[in-house]
Each structure stands twice: as C-alpha cells, then as structure tokens.
Design a protein around this nucleic acid. Structure first.
Lengths: 149, 149
DNA sequence: CCTAAAGTGTACCAAATCGGTACTGATTAG
DNA sequence: CTAATCAGTACCGATTTGGTACACTTTAGG
C-alpha cells in the first residue's frame, strides 16, 4: 500500500493536538497522553518537527513545544516532508544520478509531474483543515481531478 | 521519502515498454533487456500485473505479455494499486479497526480525503501520458498550488 | 509425441527500513 | 542546586523489500 510511515502518521496526530491550543506550550508528556504513544517515540518526532521549523521548542522546566505558525499556514506536505524528506515517488525522480536506468528510462520526467501533483494534494490540506470534524468546507478546494480520467 | 516501491517503479517502466508496441506480444526476456533488470524480477512483476488484469499473458512457445487495454485506458493508479494494493496513506484510513487510536483520533477522516486526492492524481496520468517525451501538453492541468512553504 | 520456449507457483534469503527503547547530556525555573 | 524537560546518540528486533532458486505447466513445431 502506498502510505506514509507510522511516524508521519503520528506526527500529524501530534500536530493536530498542538493545533488544538496553538498558543500554549505543551510538554512532550502531555502530548503523549493525548495520542497514546510512548514518550520516547513522541519525543523523537517532536524533535524532528522542531528541527524542520514547524514547531518551536522550549527547554527547561515548564518547557515544551508550540506550533511555529498558525495551523492554517502548516500543510500536510510540510509534515510529510519534515518526517520523510522530499516527496519523490521514485528514486530517480527526486535526484538525478541515483538510478542507472536514466539513459533508457522514458518515464522519469513524467514521474516528476506526478510528484508535483501529489505534493500539491498534500500541500492543499492545512493542519487547520485536519482538525475540523466535518470534511465539508474547504474540502472542495482540494484539487482532485488531474489530467485524463 | 514518500515513494512507491522499486517494484512499482519497475512496473511502470515495463508497462511503458509494452505500451510502445501495444499490439505485439512481448516475452519476459525481451522486456528484461529493455528495462535492464533480472529476469526473475521482471517475471514476478509481470505476473502480478497480469493477475490484476492490466496485461494478458500467453503461455507456451512464442508466449509473452500484452497490454489488456489501450495505453490511454491504463492509469498510473492502476499500476500502483496492482503492485501495492489499495492506496491508503495511513493504516487506519484504508480500513477501519486496524488502529486502536480511532476513538480519539480526529484526523482519520481527513486522511481519507487526502487518499482520494492522491488516488486522483495518480488516476489522472495514463500510460499513454507516461510514454510521451514532452511534459508539455496536458501537463499544465496538474494542480500545483502549494499552501505555506 | 517429444522437445524447447515460455509463463506459473512456491519457497527462501539477505539487506534495508522502521518502530521502538535506553541512556546520557544540556538547559532552565524556582 | 535540583527537578523538569528537551537534545543527541546508539542500539535492537521485527517487518518489509528486493532478489534468487527451483520445480511445474502449457504450447508450437518438428
């Protein structure tokens, strides 16, 4: 199945939890209780999200994490990229030289277009969208139809 | 990196090779030479593509494989699904009951929307599109818009 | 019929990835 | 100075992935 890693999945849950109270600083411990995961796991992904600049960290007593931007300005693409690196559906479509088929592979360029389509789909959903219970509203703005079918 | 498996990648190359001469029957051996992979590997994915109904197989001497439909009527989504199963970016968004967070996870429904957007992006590119050298033409209709970054 | 060309099915193995854990260090409020 | 809390590193086990091996079936053609 084409899917993101569990860590990425968890990351969206944690980000959603942070987005529920964007102004407050949440400790890793508190977030752990919200998403029902082990502390080291939550800790690890929080660190990753922080180094990607999606959340701010505060050390020391009463420290914790807080969204770096408004939930409307953080997209699922941001989270996926923070956790898994650049979106590239195939090795060679992400960086050149990584695949020795390049010379005779006619589909590479087209995979790059697909990457962009998928990045667009992920970028079109914000964290604010994710915490809305109803899939109505901005849902319609997700680009669905692409080319042919 | 969010990506499809190598086998899926190879499968698109093999399908592209088949699409280059849709009427002819190609042996696995011949396709192996085109995509520069090992025969058992090509053989394995051809079998999988055949059982998904994307290609037809012919046994015996002068046997081989042929596209089951016109290249315009086979999408990248078809190939990805044939190789990796249903598109579901998270465990729980594909089938219910597979995740014990369901009760307190507010983002599940929204992942389902994202799945559909991605499936749409993949369904929108046909095999015929993939073998076109120029990324021009209908390319412009792929939604590109990005939110934050 | 017999043989060779070709696909089918099953099983298996090594390497990479992934998810998780442990432990130690650094920072800061009180 | 102490406790709370984030940061960094290292490691481990399980799963997945990619690849290989081998025995079986089907079919065209002599």
């Amino acid at each position: 199945m084409l899917r993101v890693s569990k860590l990425t999945d968890y990351a969206t849950e944690v980000m959603a939890a942070l987005a529920a109270a964007p102004a407050r600083v949440h400790s890793a411990q508190e977030l752990t209780e919200r998403v029902r995961l082990e502390l080291p796991t939550v800790s690890k992904l929080l660190k990753q999200l922080a180094s990607a600049g999606l959340i701010e960290s505060f050390r020391g007593v009463n420290g914790g994490y807080r969204l770096a931007r408004a939930p409307e300005r953080i997209s699922i693409a941001d989270i996926v990229i923070a956790m898994e690196g650049p979106i590239g559906m195939t090795e060679c479509s992400a960086q050149a030289g990584s695949c020795d088929h390049e010379s005779h592979c006619g589909v590479r360029v087209n995979w790059q277009r697909i990457n962009q389509a998928i990045a667009g789909a992920l970028a079109g959903v914000s964290l604010a969208d994710m915490i809305k219970p109803s899939p109505r509203r901005r849902a319609a703005s997700i680009p669905l139809r692409v080319v042919g079918a």
